[in-house]
Computed example of a mutant assay.
Amino acid sequence: MFRKQHLEVIDFKTFMAGTYRKPKRLIKTSVYSFLPSITVSSFLSPDVAGIYAVVLGVFALGMLSHCLEVYAASSGRESLAEAIETVTRLAFSIGGFSFIGWFLLSL
């Protein structure tokens, strides 16, 4: 249950040099090497312009859908507003899950 502690005698020069310790095993790969560097130049590079266009397009489509739905509901066309809401909800759900599936299959 209880172990006796063994006293180990080491040379003073070895103690001062620090070579008596077992070397620690370090991971050579940095965590940051898995992530792309985020700088101003990489943020504004033409490589990611397509991603910005897709994000802005989805945002614009969502805002247009919302404005049309609010306008239809305020002008007394509840059935049209409900249809716009249903189509938008289905389109965003199908598009989102399709993107997730594409991303996972492309890894």
Rank of each mutant, 00 (worst) to 15 (best):
L105F: 13
W102A: 14
A49C: 03
K22P: 02
L68W: 10
V31S: 05
S74M: 06
T29K: 15
T14P: 00
Y32L: 10
A81W: 02
M63G: 08
F34Q: 06
T14F: 02
F34K: 05
I27K: 07
S75W: 07
L107N: 08
R89G: 14
G57N: 07
A83F: 06
K28P: 03
G76H: 00
F43K: 01
M16I: 15
S74L: 07
Y52L: 10
M63Q: 07
W102Q: 08
P46I: 09
T88A: 12
F2W: 01
F99K: 00
G101T: 15
E8S: 09
A81L: 03
I38T: 11
L35H: 06
L44P: 00
G57V: 07
T29Q: 14
F43W: 08
V48R: 12
V31N: 01
M63H: 06
I100M: 15
A72H: 02
L105S: 11
K13D: 13
L61D: 00
S74W: 02
Y32I: 06
Y32A: 08
H6M: 14
S93W: 12
P23D: 10
I94V: 15
P23G: 01
H66W: 14
W102G: 09
I51W: 04
C67L: 13
V58Q: 04
I84V: 15
L35D: 05
R77D: 09
A17T: 13
G95K: 03
Y20A: 11
I51L: 14
V31R: 03
V9S: 07
G101V: 15
R25Y: 04
Q5L: 15
F2V: 08
D47Q: 13
T14M: 05
I84K: 03
A72K: 06
K13T: 09
L64H: 10
K13V: 07
V54L: 15
V9W: 06
I27S: 11
A17F: 04
Q5D: 11
V87M: 05
G57R: 03
R89S: 14
I10W: 02
V31Y: 03
V31H: 02
G76K: 01
I84N: 09
L26N: 05
A72T: 02
S65V: 01
L104H: 05
S30E: 12
E69I: 02
V54I: 12
D47C: 04
L26F: 11
T88I: 01
G96T: 15
Q5S: 14
G95Y: 09
V55D: 10
A91V: 13
F103W: 12
T39C: 03
Y71S: 09
L90D: 11
K22A: 10
L44T: 10
S30G: 08
G50L: 06
L26S: 11
F43L: 15
S106K: 12
I27C: 05
F12C: 01
D11F: 05
F34A: 05
I84D: 06
S93K: 13
A60H: 01
Y52D: 07
A73L: 05
F43V: 06
F34L: 13
F99Q: 03
T19H: 12
S45F: 00
Y20R: 04
A73I: 00
